[in-house]
């Protein structure tokens, strides 16, 4: 049995990282992610890890890159506005194949925006973490327990695939206090053949993303890795989908709300199910493949103008059966409104 705590999502992320074996945390304050850094400043020394507050997100992520190059297990926490600044270095790390964990607690809206729950960073983290067309794994926890589980796991994923990994959630999920259980033991760390470690007498190594003489071969190696990630990292939860006529699709906090909606809809006799992507990159297309050509309707719910809905449409084959519910920005989707949309879709069915 592990250890139970009633704890905020952001603090759970930090505590899970410490327990997973995080050795360096580099940080610049930004709401609504700052509790991660504050918790690390107070607790990371417990396991001998180093905490540093940088002069900017740009410096924080490059400090992380420097630490990661030595083979140290490193992490940063930020929000979308900071993630934008980090994107350049995330691209370098993806190119240099250096593992690290980045927690992005989303802010609402473009620019300075605001702090309400939102999912506007979906495209940014899954499609556009900087220049050059790399793909990095992205976990989308829906509650504090999943933050714990996925932060813990992400260090292993980062090292296994030699890549930066993102854990993405909204401001509410970071603020909600819930009861969580921490897994026992660290994430296992295997020796590697690439890092600038302290092994005496070994030959010099180079950690780089630059290929002045042509990038062809390196690109093919990266593409093979992305294929491997697509094969092994498609993760999703299915709930009441067996006989469903309408399937809700939502990630993160929307996913947990949709689960309650499914229960309420079933009480009314509506055959509704849920597919909740747990990893949003690589997108779990597998979950949708079997519905191609069927009459099952899909209703994607997002707290944004609509970003993941395009991946759903691609996975299921876009047709009259794919629908999108765009929640108004600045609040969580109201269950009653989703239920109304479901009743409407059911009506269109008959």
């Amino acid at each position: 049995m592990g250890d139970f705590k009633f704890i905020k999502g952001n603090e759970a992320a930090a505590e899970a990282a410490i327990r997973a074996g995080c050795e360096g945390f580099f940080f610049y304050p930004v709401t609504p992610s700052s509790e991660i850094g504050e918790y690390m400043a107070n607790h990371l020394h417990r396991t001998g890890g180093v905490f540093a507050q940088a002069e900017s997100e740009i410096a924080a992520v490059n400090m992380m890159f420097g630490g990661a190059a030595t083979g140290a297990r490193v992490m940063t926490g930020t929000s979308g506005v900071g993630y934008s600044l980090m994107s350049e270095c995330i691209s370098y790390m993806a190119g240099a194949e250096v593992p690290a964990v980045i927690v992005d607690v989303m802010r609402a809206g473009p620019g300075l925006g605001s702090l309400e729950p939102t999912q506007g960073d979906y495209n940014q983290v899954t499609k556009a973490s900087g220049h050059g067309g790399h793909i990095i794994p992205v976990y989308a926890p829906s509650n504090a327990q999943e933050i714990v589980n996925f932060v813990h796991e992400s260090f292993g994923t980062a090292e296994r695939f030699r890549t930066p990994v993102v854990v993405l959630y909204d401001g509410y999920t970071g603020q909600v206090m819930e009861s969580v259980e921490f897994p026992e033991g660290r994430q296992e760390k295997k020796p590697n053949t690439w890092s600038l470690d302290d092994a005496p007498g070994r030959k010099g190594r180079v950690v780089r993303s630059g290929y002045a003489g042509g990038i062809g071969q390196h690109s093919f190696e990266l593409y093979a890795k992305y294929d491997d990630m697509k094969e092994k990292l498609q993760r999703f939860e299915e709930y009441q989908t067996e006989d469903a006529e309408i399937i809700l699709v939502g990630f993160g906090i929307v996913g947990r709300i949709c689960k309650s909606v499914v229960d309420k809809a079933r009480d009314e006799g509506l055959k509704v199910g849920l597919i909740r992507p747990i990893m949003i990159s690589p997108f779990p297309a597998k979950a949708f493949a079997k519905y191609k050509g069927t009459k099952v309707k899909f209703l994607t719910i997002e707290m944004s103008y609509g970003q993941m809905c395009h991946d759903v449409a691609l996975a299921v084959g876009e047709n009259d059966n794919t629908h999108f519910f765009r929640d108004k920005c600045g609040s969580l989707p109201a269950m009653s409104e989703i239920l109304n949309r479901l009743r409407q879709l059911k009506g269109e069915n008959s």
Binding site: F26, I58, M63, G66, V206, R208, S209, G210
Partner: peptide, 24 residues
């Protein structure tokens, strides 16, 4: 060069050096 090298984004070696020295 025969020893260890880390190549980082334009302008950022100072931050990377700080992070590396802290970790090792």
């Amino acid at each position: 060069m025969t020893y260890d090298i880390l190549s980082v984004p334009h302008g950022r070696p100072g931050a990377a050096a700080s992070g590396m020295k802290k970790c090792d």
